[in-house]
Simulated assay, not measured.
Amino acid sequence: MYIDYETILHEFEPKIKKSLYQTAPYNREDLEQEIKLKIYEKLPVIQNIDAPGYYEFVHGEALVAEPKARYSDRPSLLNK
């Protein structure tokens, strides 16, 4: 999956602007440039993220794999 730098900046722009209000006004421009630089540096990592699908996220790998023996298939401990 390829995501270009401009698209990522556009998506993160509201969060960046909102976060800058926690900084003194005279530092905001420098901090904004630093944040954008860090996003640019991490672009290869962002592009190579392999996120799980819905089923894998909700149910985990155990349910995606072959099911284990059901409880009824196990030998009963009461019959001994």
Rank of each mutant, 00 (worst) to 15 (best):
G53M: 10
L31V: 15
Y2E: 11
S72M: 07
F12R: 00
I49H: 00
P14E: 04
N79V: 11
V58R: 10
L31A: 13
V45E: 09
K42I: 06
S19E: 05
Y26F: 14
A24S: 11
Y26I: 14
Y71T: 11
H10M: 07
H10Q: 12
P25A: 15
V45H: 04
I8C: 04
D73I: 00
K36G: 03
P67K: 08
P14N: 01
G60C: 05
A51K: 06
P75N: 08
K42Y: 11
R28A: 11
R74N: 05
S76T: 09
K38S: 12
L31K: 14
I39E: 00
E34M: 10
Y71W: 09
K68Y: 05
R70M: 12
F12Y: 01
E13Q: 12
E13L: 08
E56M: 05
L9C: 12
I39T: 01
L78V: 07
L20V: 06
K38Q: 12
Y5T: 08
K42P: 00
I35V: 15
D50V: 13
D50Y: 05
H59G: 03
P52T: 06
L20G: 02
S72C: 04
I49A: 03
I49W: 00
E41N: 05
T7R: 07
Y21E: 15
E34R: 09
I8P: 01
D50N: 09
S76D: 15
E6I: 09
N27E: 14
A69V: 10
E56W: 03
S19R: 03
D30V: 08
I39D: 00
P52R: 06
S72A: 12
Y40F: 11
Y5G: 01
P14W: 02
H59V: 13
S76V: 07
Y40L: 13
A51I: 13
N48Y: 06
N27A: 11
D30Y: 03
E56N: 08
Y21V: 13
N79D: 13
L77E: 14
R28E: 08
Y2H: 10
I16D: 02
L31P: 00
G53I: 11
N48I: 06
P67V: 11
E11G: 01
I46S: 04
E6H: 11
E11L: 09
E6F: 02
Y55V: 15
K18L: 13
R70G: 13
Y26M: 11
K80G: 07
V45K: 04
A65S: 14
N79Q: 10
E41L: 06
E13I: 09
E34K: 09
M1Q: 04
Y54A: 12
S72D: 11
Y54V: 15
Y55I: 15
E41W: 01
D73M: 04
F12A: 09
L20N: 03
T7V: 13
I8A: 10
L31W: 04
Q33E: 15
A65R: 06
H59P: 00
R74V: 14
A69W: 02
K15F: 08
A65V: 06
Y26V: 09
F12I: 05
D50S: 07
L31I: 15
E29Y: 05
L63R: 07
L37N: 09
